[in-house]
Amino acid sequence: MGFKLLSKLLVYLTASIMAIASPLAFSVDSSGEYPTVSEIPVGEVRLYQIADGVWSHIATQSFDGAVYPSNGLIVRDGDELLLIDTAWGAKNTAALLAEIEKQIGLPVTRAVSTHFHDDRVGGVDVLRAAGVATYASPSTRRLAEVEGNEIPTHSLEGLSSSGDAVRFGPVELFYPGAAHSTDNLIVYVPSASVLYGGCAIYELSRTSAGNVADADLAEWPTSIERIQQHYPEAQFVIPGHGLPGGLDLLKHTTNVVKAHTNRSVVE
């Protein structure tokens, strides 16, 4: 069995187990497998329904001669939608809004960016022009300005110390501490036991640490421990890039980060 097929099978099995364990909360999309990078042309966006009122959005972007996937989250909030992270750029984010209108038909009224990198804030200006209120932590807003990236308009308070959590509509926002970046936030959907790890969490097929220019490698494993301790009931975990899975993604990420750190020390 090929690795790609095995990865998709694991996603399907995880979703099936969740649907059985929580039949009222989960209505997993039966329309197909989780979209992969090879299936999404740059400039297009796919939506994948995880649970009743919960979707991931998947886009792709060219970077350094390669094409990478990027995940975000959409959560229903009454007759409105909360968006977590842009679709990595203005063109993708405009396509995301169009796809949401086509498939869901509810307005996106608020959006949260989970850290300051372009795959999370690139497209904020498109959201703002569409009347979406954009939010991020003060740290993310400051770092985005320093980096020359787009800056969300509103500040999220109460997320300055490791372990801080605040309720934001249908989700809980959690600051686990520094990891992929010093400002990275985690998003949890309690009604569906869905954990969105953003770039602080890796997919299972990833074996290298990737972009760690703004990471705190020493603190990252401790931050992941905080996530595990705060959300032990999480059933569906979405990484910032690639295929979702279960809580095993947290341990896998820790292993990859520690291996990278150990290699760096040896070198």
Rank of each mutant, 00 (worst) to 15 (best):
M1N: 07
G2M: 08
G2D: 14
F3A: 03
K4S: 02
K4R: 05
K4F: 01
L5Y: 12
S7T: 07
K8C: 09
K8H: 06
K8D: 15
L9Q: 07
L9V: 06
L10C: 08
L10W: 12
V11G: 07
V11K: 06
V11S: 08
V11I: 06
Y12M: 14
Y12N: 05
L13N: 08
L13F: 05
L13T: 06
L13D: 07
S16Q: 12
I17Y: 05
I17H: 01
I17R: 04
M18Q: 05
A19D: 15
A19V: 09
I20N: 11
I20V: 09
I20P: 14
I20Y: 13
A21E: 10
S22E: 11
S22P: 03
P23I: 11
P23F: 08
L24Q: 15
L24N: 04
L24D: 05
L24Y: 11
L24W: 13
A25P: 13
F26G: 07
V28S: 04
S30R: 07
S30A: 06
S31Q: 03
G32C: 01
Y34E: 09
P35M: 09
V37G: 06
S38G: 07
P41S: 10
P41V: 05
V42F: 05
V42T: 13
E44P: 03
R46T: 13
L47D: 05
Y48G: 11
Y48T: 05
Q49P: 05
Q49E: 03
Q49R: 07
A51L: 06
A51D: 03
A51F: 11
A51N: 15
G53K: 08
V54Y: 14
W55A: 08
S56W: 07
H57C: 02
H57D: 14
H57P: 01
A59Y: 07
T60F: 13
Q61H: 03
F63Q: 04
F63L: 06
D64L: 07
D64A: 06
D64G: 07
D64T: 08
V67L: 03
V67H: 11
Y68S: 03
Y68E: 07
P69D: 05
S70C: 04
S70N: 04
S70K: 04
N71L: 06
N71Y: 04
N71T: 06
G72L: 01
G72N: 05
G72T: 09
I74T: 12
I74M: 06
I74G: 05
V75A: 05
V75I: 15
D77K: 04
D77T: 04
G78V: 08
D79V: 12
E80S: 13
E80W: 13
L82W: 13
L82S: 12
L83C: 11
I84Q: 00
I84V: 14
I84H: 02
D85R: 00
D85K: 00
D85Q: 00
T86I: 04
W88Y: 04
K91Q: 14
K91F: 05
K91W: 12
K91H: 02
N92V: 10
N92W: 12
T93Q: 12
A95G: 12
A95S: 11
A95Q: 08
L96M: 07
L96D: 00
L97H: 00
L97Q: 00
L97E: 03
E99M: 02
E99V: 06
I100S: 11
I100F: 01
I100T: 07
E101P: 03
E101F: 14
Q103P: 03
I104D: 01
G105C: 02
G105W: 05
L106E: 08
L106M: 06
L106V: 12
L106Y: 11
P107G: 09
V108T: 12
R110H: 14
R110Q: 08
R110W: 14
V112W: 03
S113P: 03
S113L: 07
S113I: 03
T114L: 00
H115D: 00
H115T: 00
F116C: 07
F116V: 03
F116I: 00
H117I: 00
D118C: 08
R120F: 08
R120T: 05
R120L: 01
V121F: 14
G122Y: 11
G123Q: 01
G123M: 00
V124G: 14
V124I: 02
V124P: 04
D125N: 00
D125V: 04
D125K: 11
D125Q: 05
L127N: 00
L127Q: 04
L127W: 14
R128F: 13
R128T: 05
A129K: 00
A129S: 13
A130L: 02
A130I: 13
A130Y: 12
G131Q: 03
G131T: 08
G131I: 11
V132S: 03
A133N: 15
A133T: 08
T134G: 12
T134L: 15
Y135P: 00
Y135V: 12
Y135K: 03
A136K: 07
A136H: 05
S137Y: 00
P138M: 15
S139V: 08
T140H: 00
T140F: 03
R142A: 10
L143S: 14
E145C: 11
E145K: 14
V146E: 11
E147I: 14
E147R: 03
N149G: 11
N149Y: 15
E150D: 15
E150S: 03
I151V: 15
I151C: 14
I151R: 12
P152E: 15
P152M: 15
T153W: 10
H154M: 01
H154C: 03
S155M: 01
S155D: 15
S155N: 00
S155W: 15
L156R: 08
E157V: 10
E157I: 15
E157N: 15
E157H: 13
E157G: 10
S160R: 08
S160W: 06
S161Q: 03
S162A: 08
D164M: 05
D164Q: 14
D164P: 07
A165R: 10
A165T: 08
V166S: 02
R167P: 07
F168I: 15
F168Y: 09
E172H: 09
E172D: 10
E172C: 14
E172A: 07
L173G: 10
L173A: 03
F174W: 11
P176E: 01
G177M: 05
G177F: 04
G177A: 01
S181K: 01
T182M: 12
T182G: 11
D183E: 08
N184Q: 12
N184I: 12
L185I: 02
I186R: 01
V187H: 01
V187G: 12
S191C: 08
S191T: 04
S191G: 11
A192M: 13
S193H: 14
L195R: 01
L195T: 09
L195Y: 14
Y196N: 09
I201T: 03
I201Q: 01
I201Y: 00
E203G: 10
L204M: 10
L204V: 10
L204E: 12
L204H: 09
S205L: 08
S205Y: 02
R206N: 15
T207L: 09
A209Q: 12
A209R: 07
A209K: 04
A209T: 05
G210A: 12
G210E: 05
V212F: 14
V212S: 12
A215H: 11
A215R: 09
A215K: 11
D216V: 10
D216A: 08
L217S: 04
A218N: 02
A218H: 11
W220N: 02
W220F: 01
W220G: 11
P221Y: 10
P221R: 12
S223I: 10
I224S: 08
I224Q: 10
I224T: 03
I224H: 04
I224D: 13
E225P: 15
E225V: 11
R226A: 08
I227C: 12
I227S: 07
Q228G: 11
H230I: 11
Y231T: 03
P232C: 01
E233R: 06
E233D: 09
A234M: 03
A234T: 15
A234N: 12
F236K: 01
F236M: 04
V237P: 03
I238P: 02
I238E: 11
I238V: 08
P239A: 09
P239T: 11
H241Q: 01
H241M: 04
H241T: 01
G242L: 04
G242S: 13
G242H: 15
L243G: 12
L243A: 08
G245K: 12
L247W: 05
D248Q: 12
L249S: 12
L249A: 13
L249Y: 05
L249D: 03
L249V: 10
L250T: 13
K251H: 00
K251W: 03
K251Y: 14
H252F: 04
T253V: 10
T253Y: 00
T253W: 08
V257C: 06
K258R: 07
T261N: 13
T261Q: 04
T261D: 03
T261S: 02
T261E: 07
R263C: 04
R263Q: 09
S264I: 15
S264T: 11
S264L: 10
S264A: 07
V265F: 03
E267H: 14
